[in-house]
């Protein structure tokens, strides 16, 4: 079946089997391997991408369900003027160790800050509660998201999104 999916602003048209999962479409068809693939059972959240702006576990979405929709992956976070503030903050605050959970964590954090530019630590924990960090780096992840929010507030950009 032919589908057209907009990924990070670029339209991709491909012929796919209906049973192809979105995570494999992104990784294997489009070569966007920044989206990781872990438990395969919708529990770990490493496969999280933004589907029409909302975090979704791409191992539990069929590629055909994304036909005509917009997907944002970790590759789409950095803008022309550098890293997304959330990426920069993860780097600065040691919000990652092995990096396996990081793409999903970054996208959920981005979506959270777009909706709520000043989240409390509890709200951050709630937002990432469907995602597992095997390096147990939650403290630093929460600090990183808070740091991204603080810097955006200082810079006066309400949501802290890189305008590219």
């Amino acid at each position: 079946m032919q589908i057209t999916v907009t990924v990070n602003g670029v339209e991709y048209t491909r012929d796919v089997e209906p049973r192809l999962l979105l995570v494999h479409f992104l990784r294997d068809e489009l070569g966007l391997t920044g989206t990781h693939w872990g438990c395969d059972t919708s529990n770990c959240g490493v496969c999280v991408v933004l589907l029409d702006g909302l975090p979704a576990k791409s191992c539990t979405v069929l590629a055909v369900m994304a036909d005509g929709h917009e997907v944002r992956t970790v590759e789409g976070l950095a803008g022309a003027d550098g890293l997304d503030p959330v990426q920069q903050a993860f780097s600065d605050m040691h919000g990652l160790q092995c990096g396996f959970c990081t793409p999903g964590m970054l996208l959920t954090s981005r979506a959270l800050l777009d909706r709520n530019p000043d989240p409390s630590p509890a709200e951050i924990r709630e937002a990432i509660s469907g995602q597992v960090c095997r390096c147990t780096g939650y403290e630093n992840i929460v600090r990183a998201v808070r740091a991204a929010a603080d810097r955006a507030a200082e810079a006066g950009t309400a949501a802290g999104t890189v305008t590219s």
């Binding site: 959240g45 999280v48 979704a56 576990k57 937002a127």
Partner: peptide
């Protein structure tokens, strides 16, 4: 119910 990401779907 589940987690916030699952609840989006």
């Amino acid at each position: 119910i589940a987690d916030p990401v699952v609840r989006n779907r």
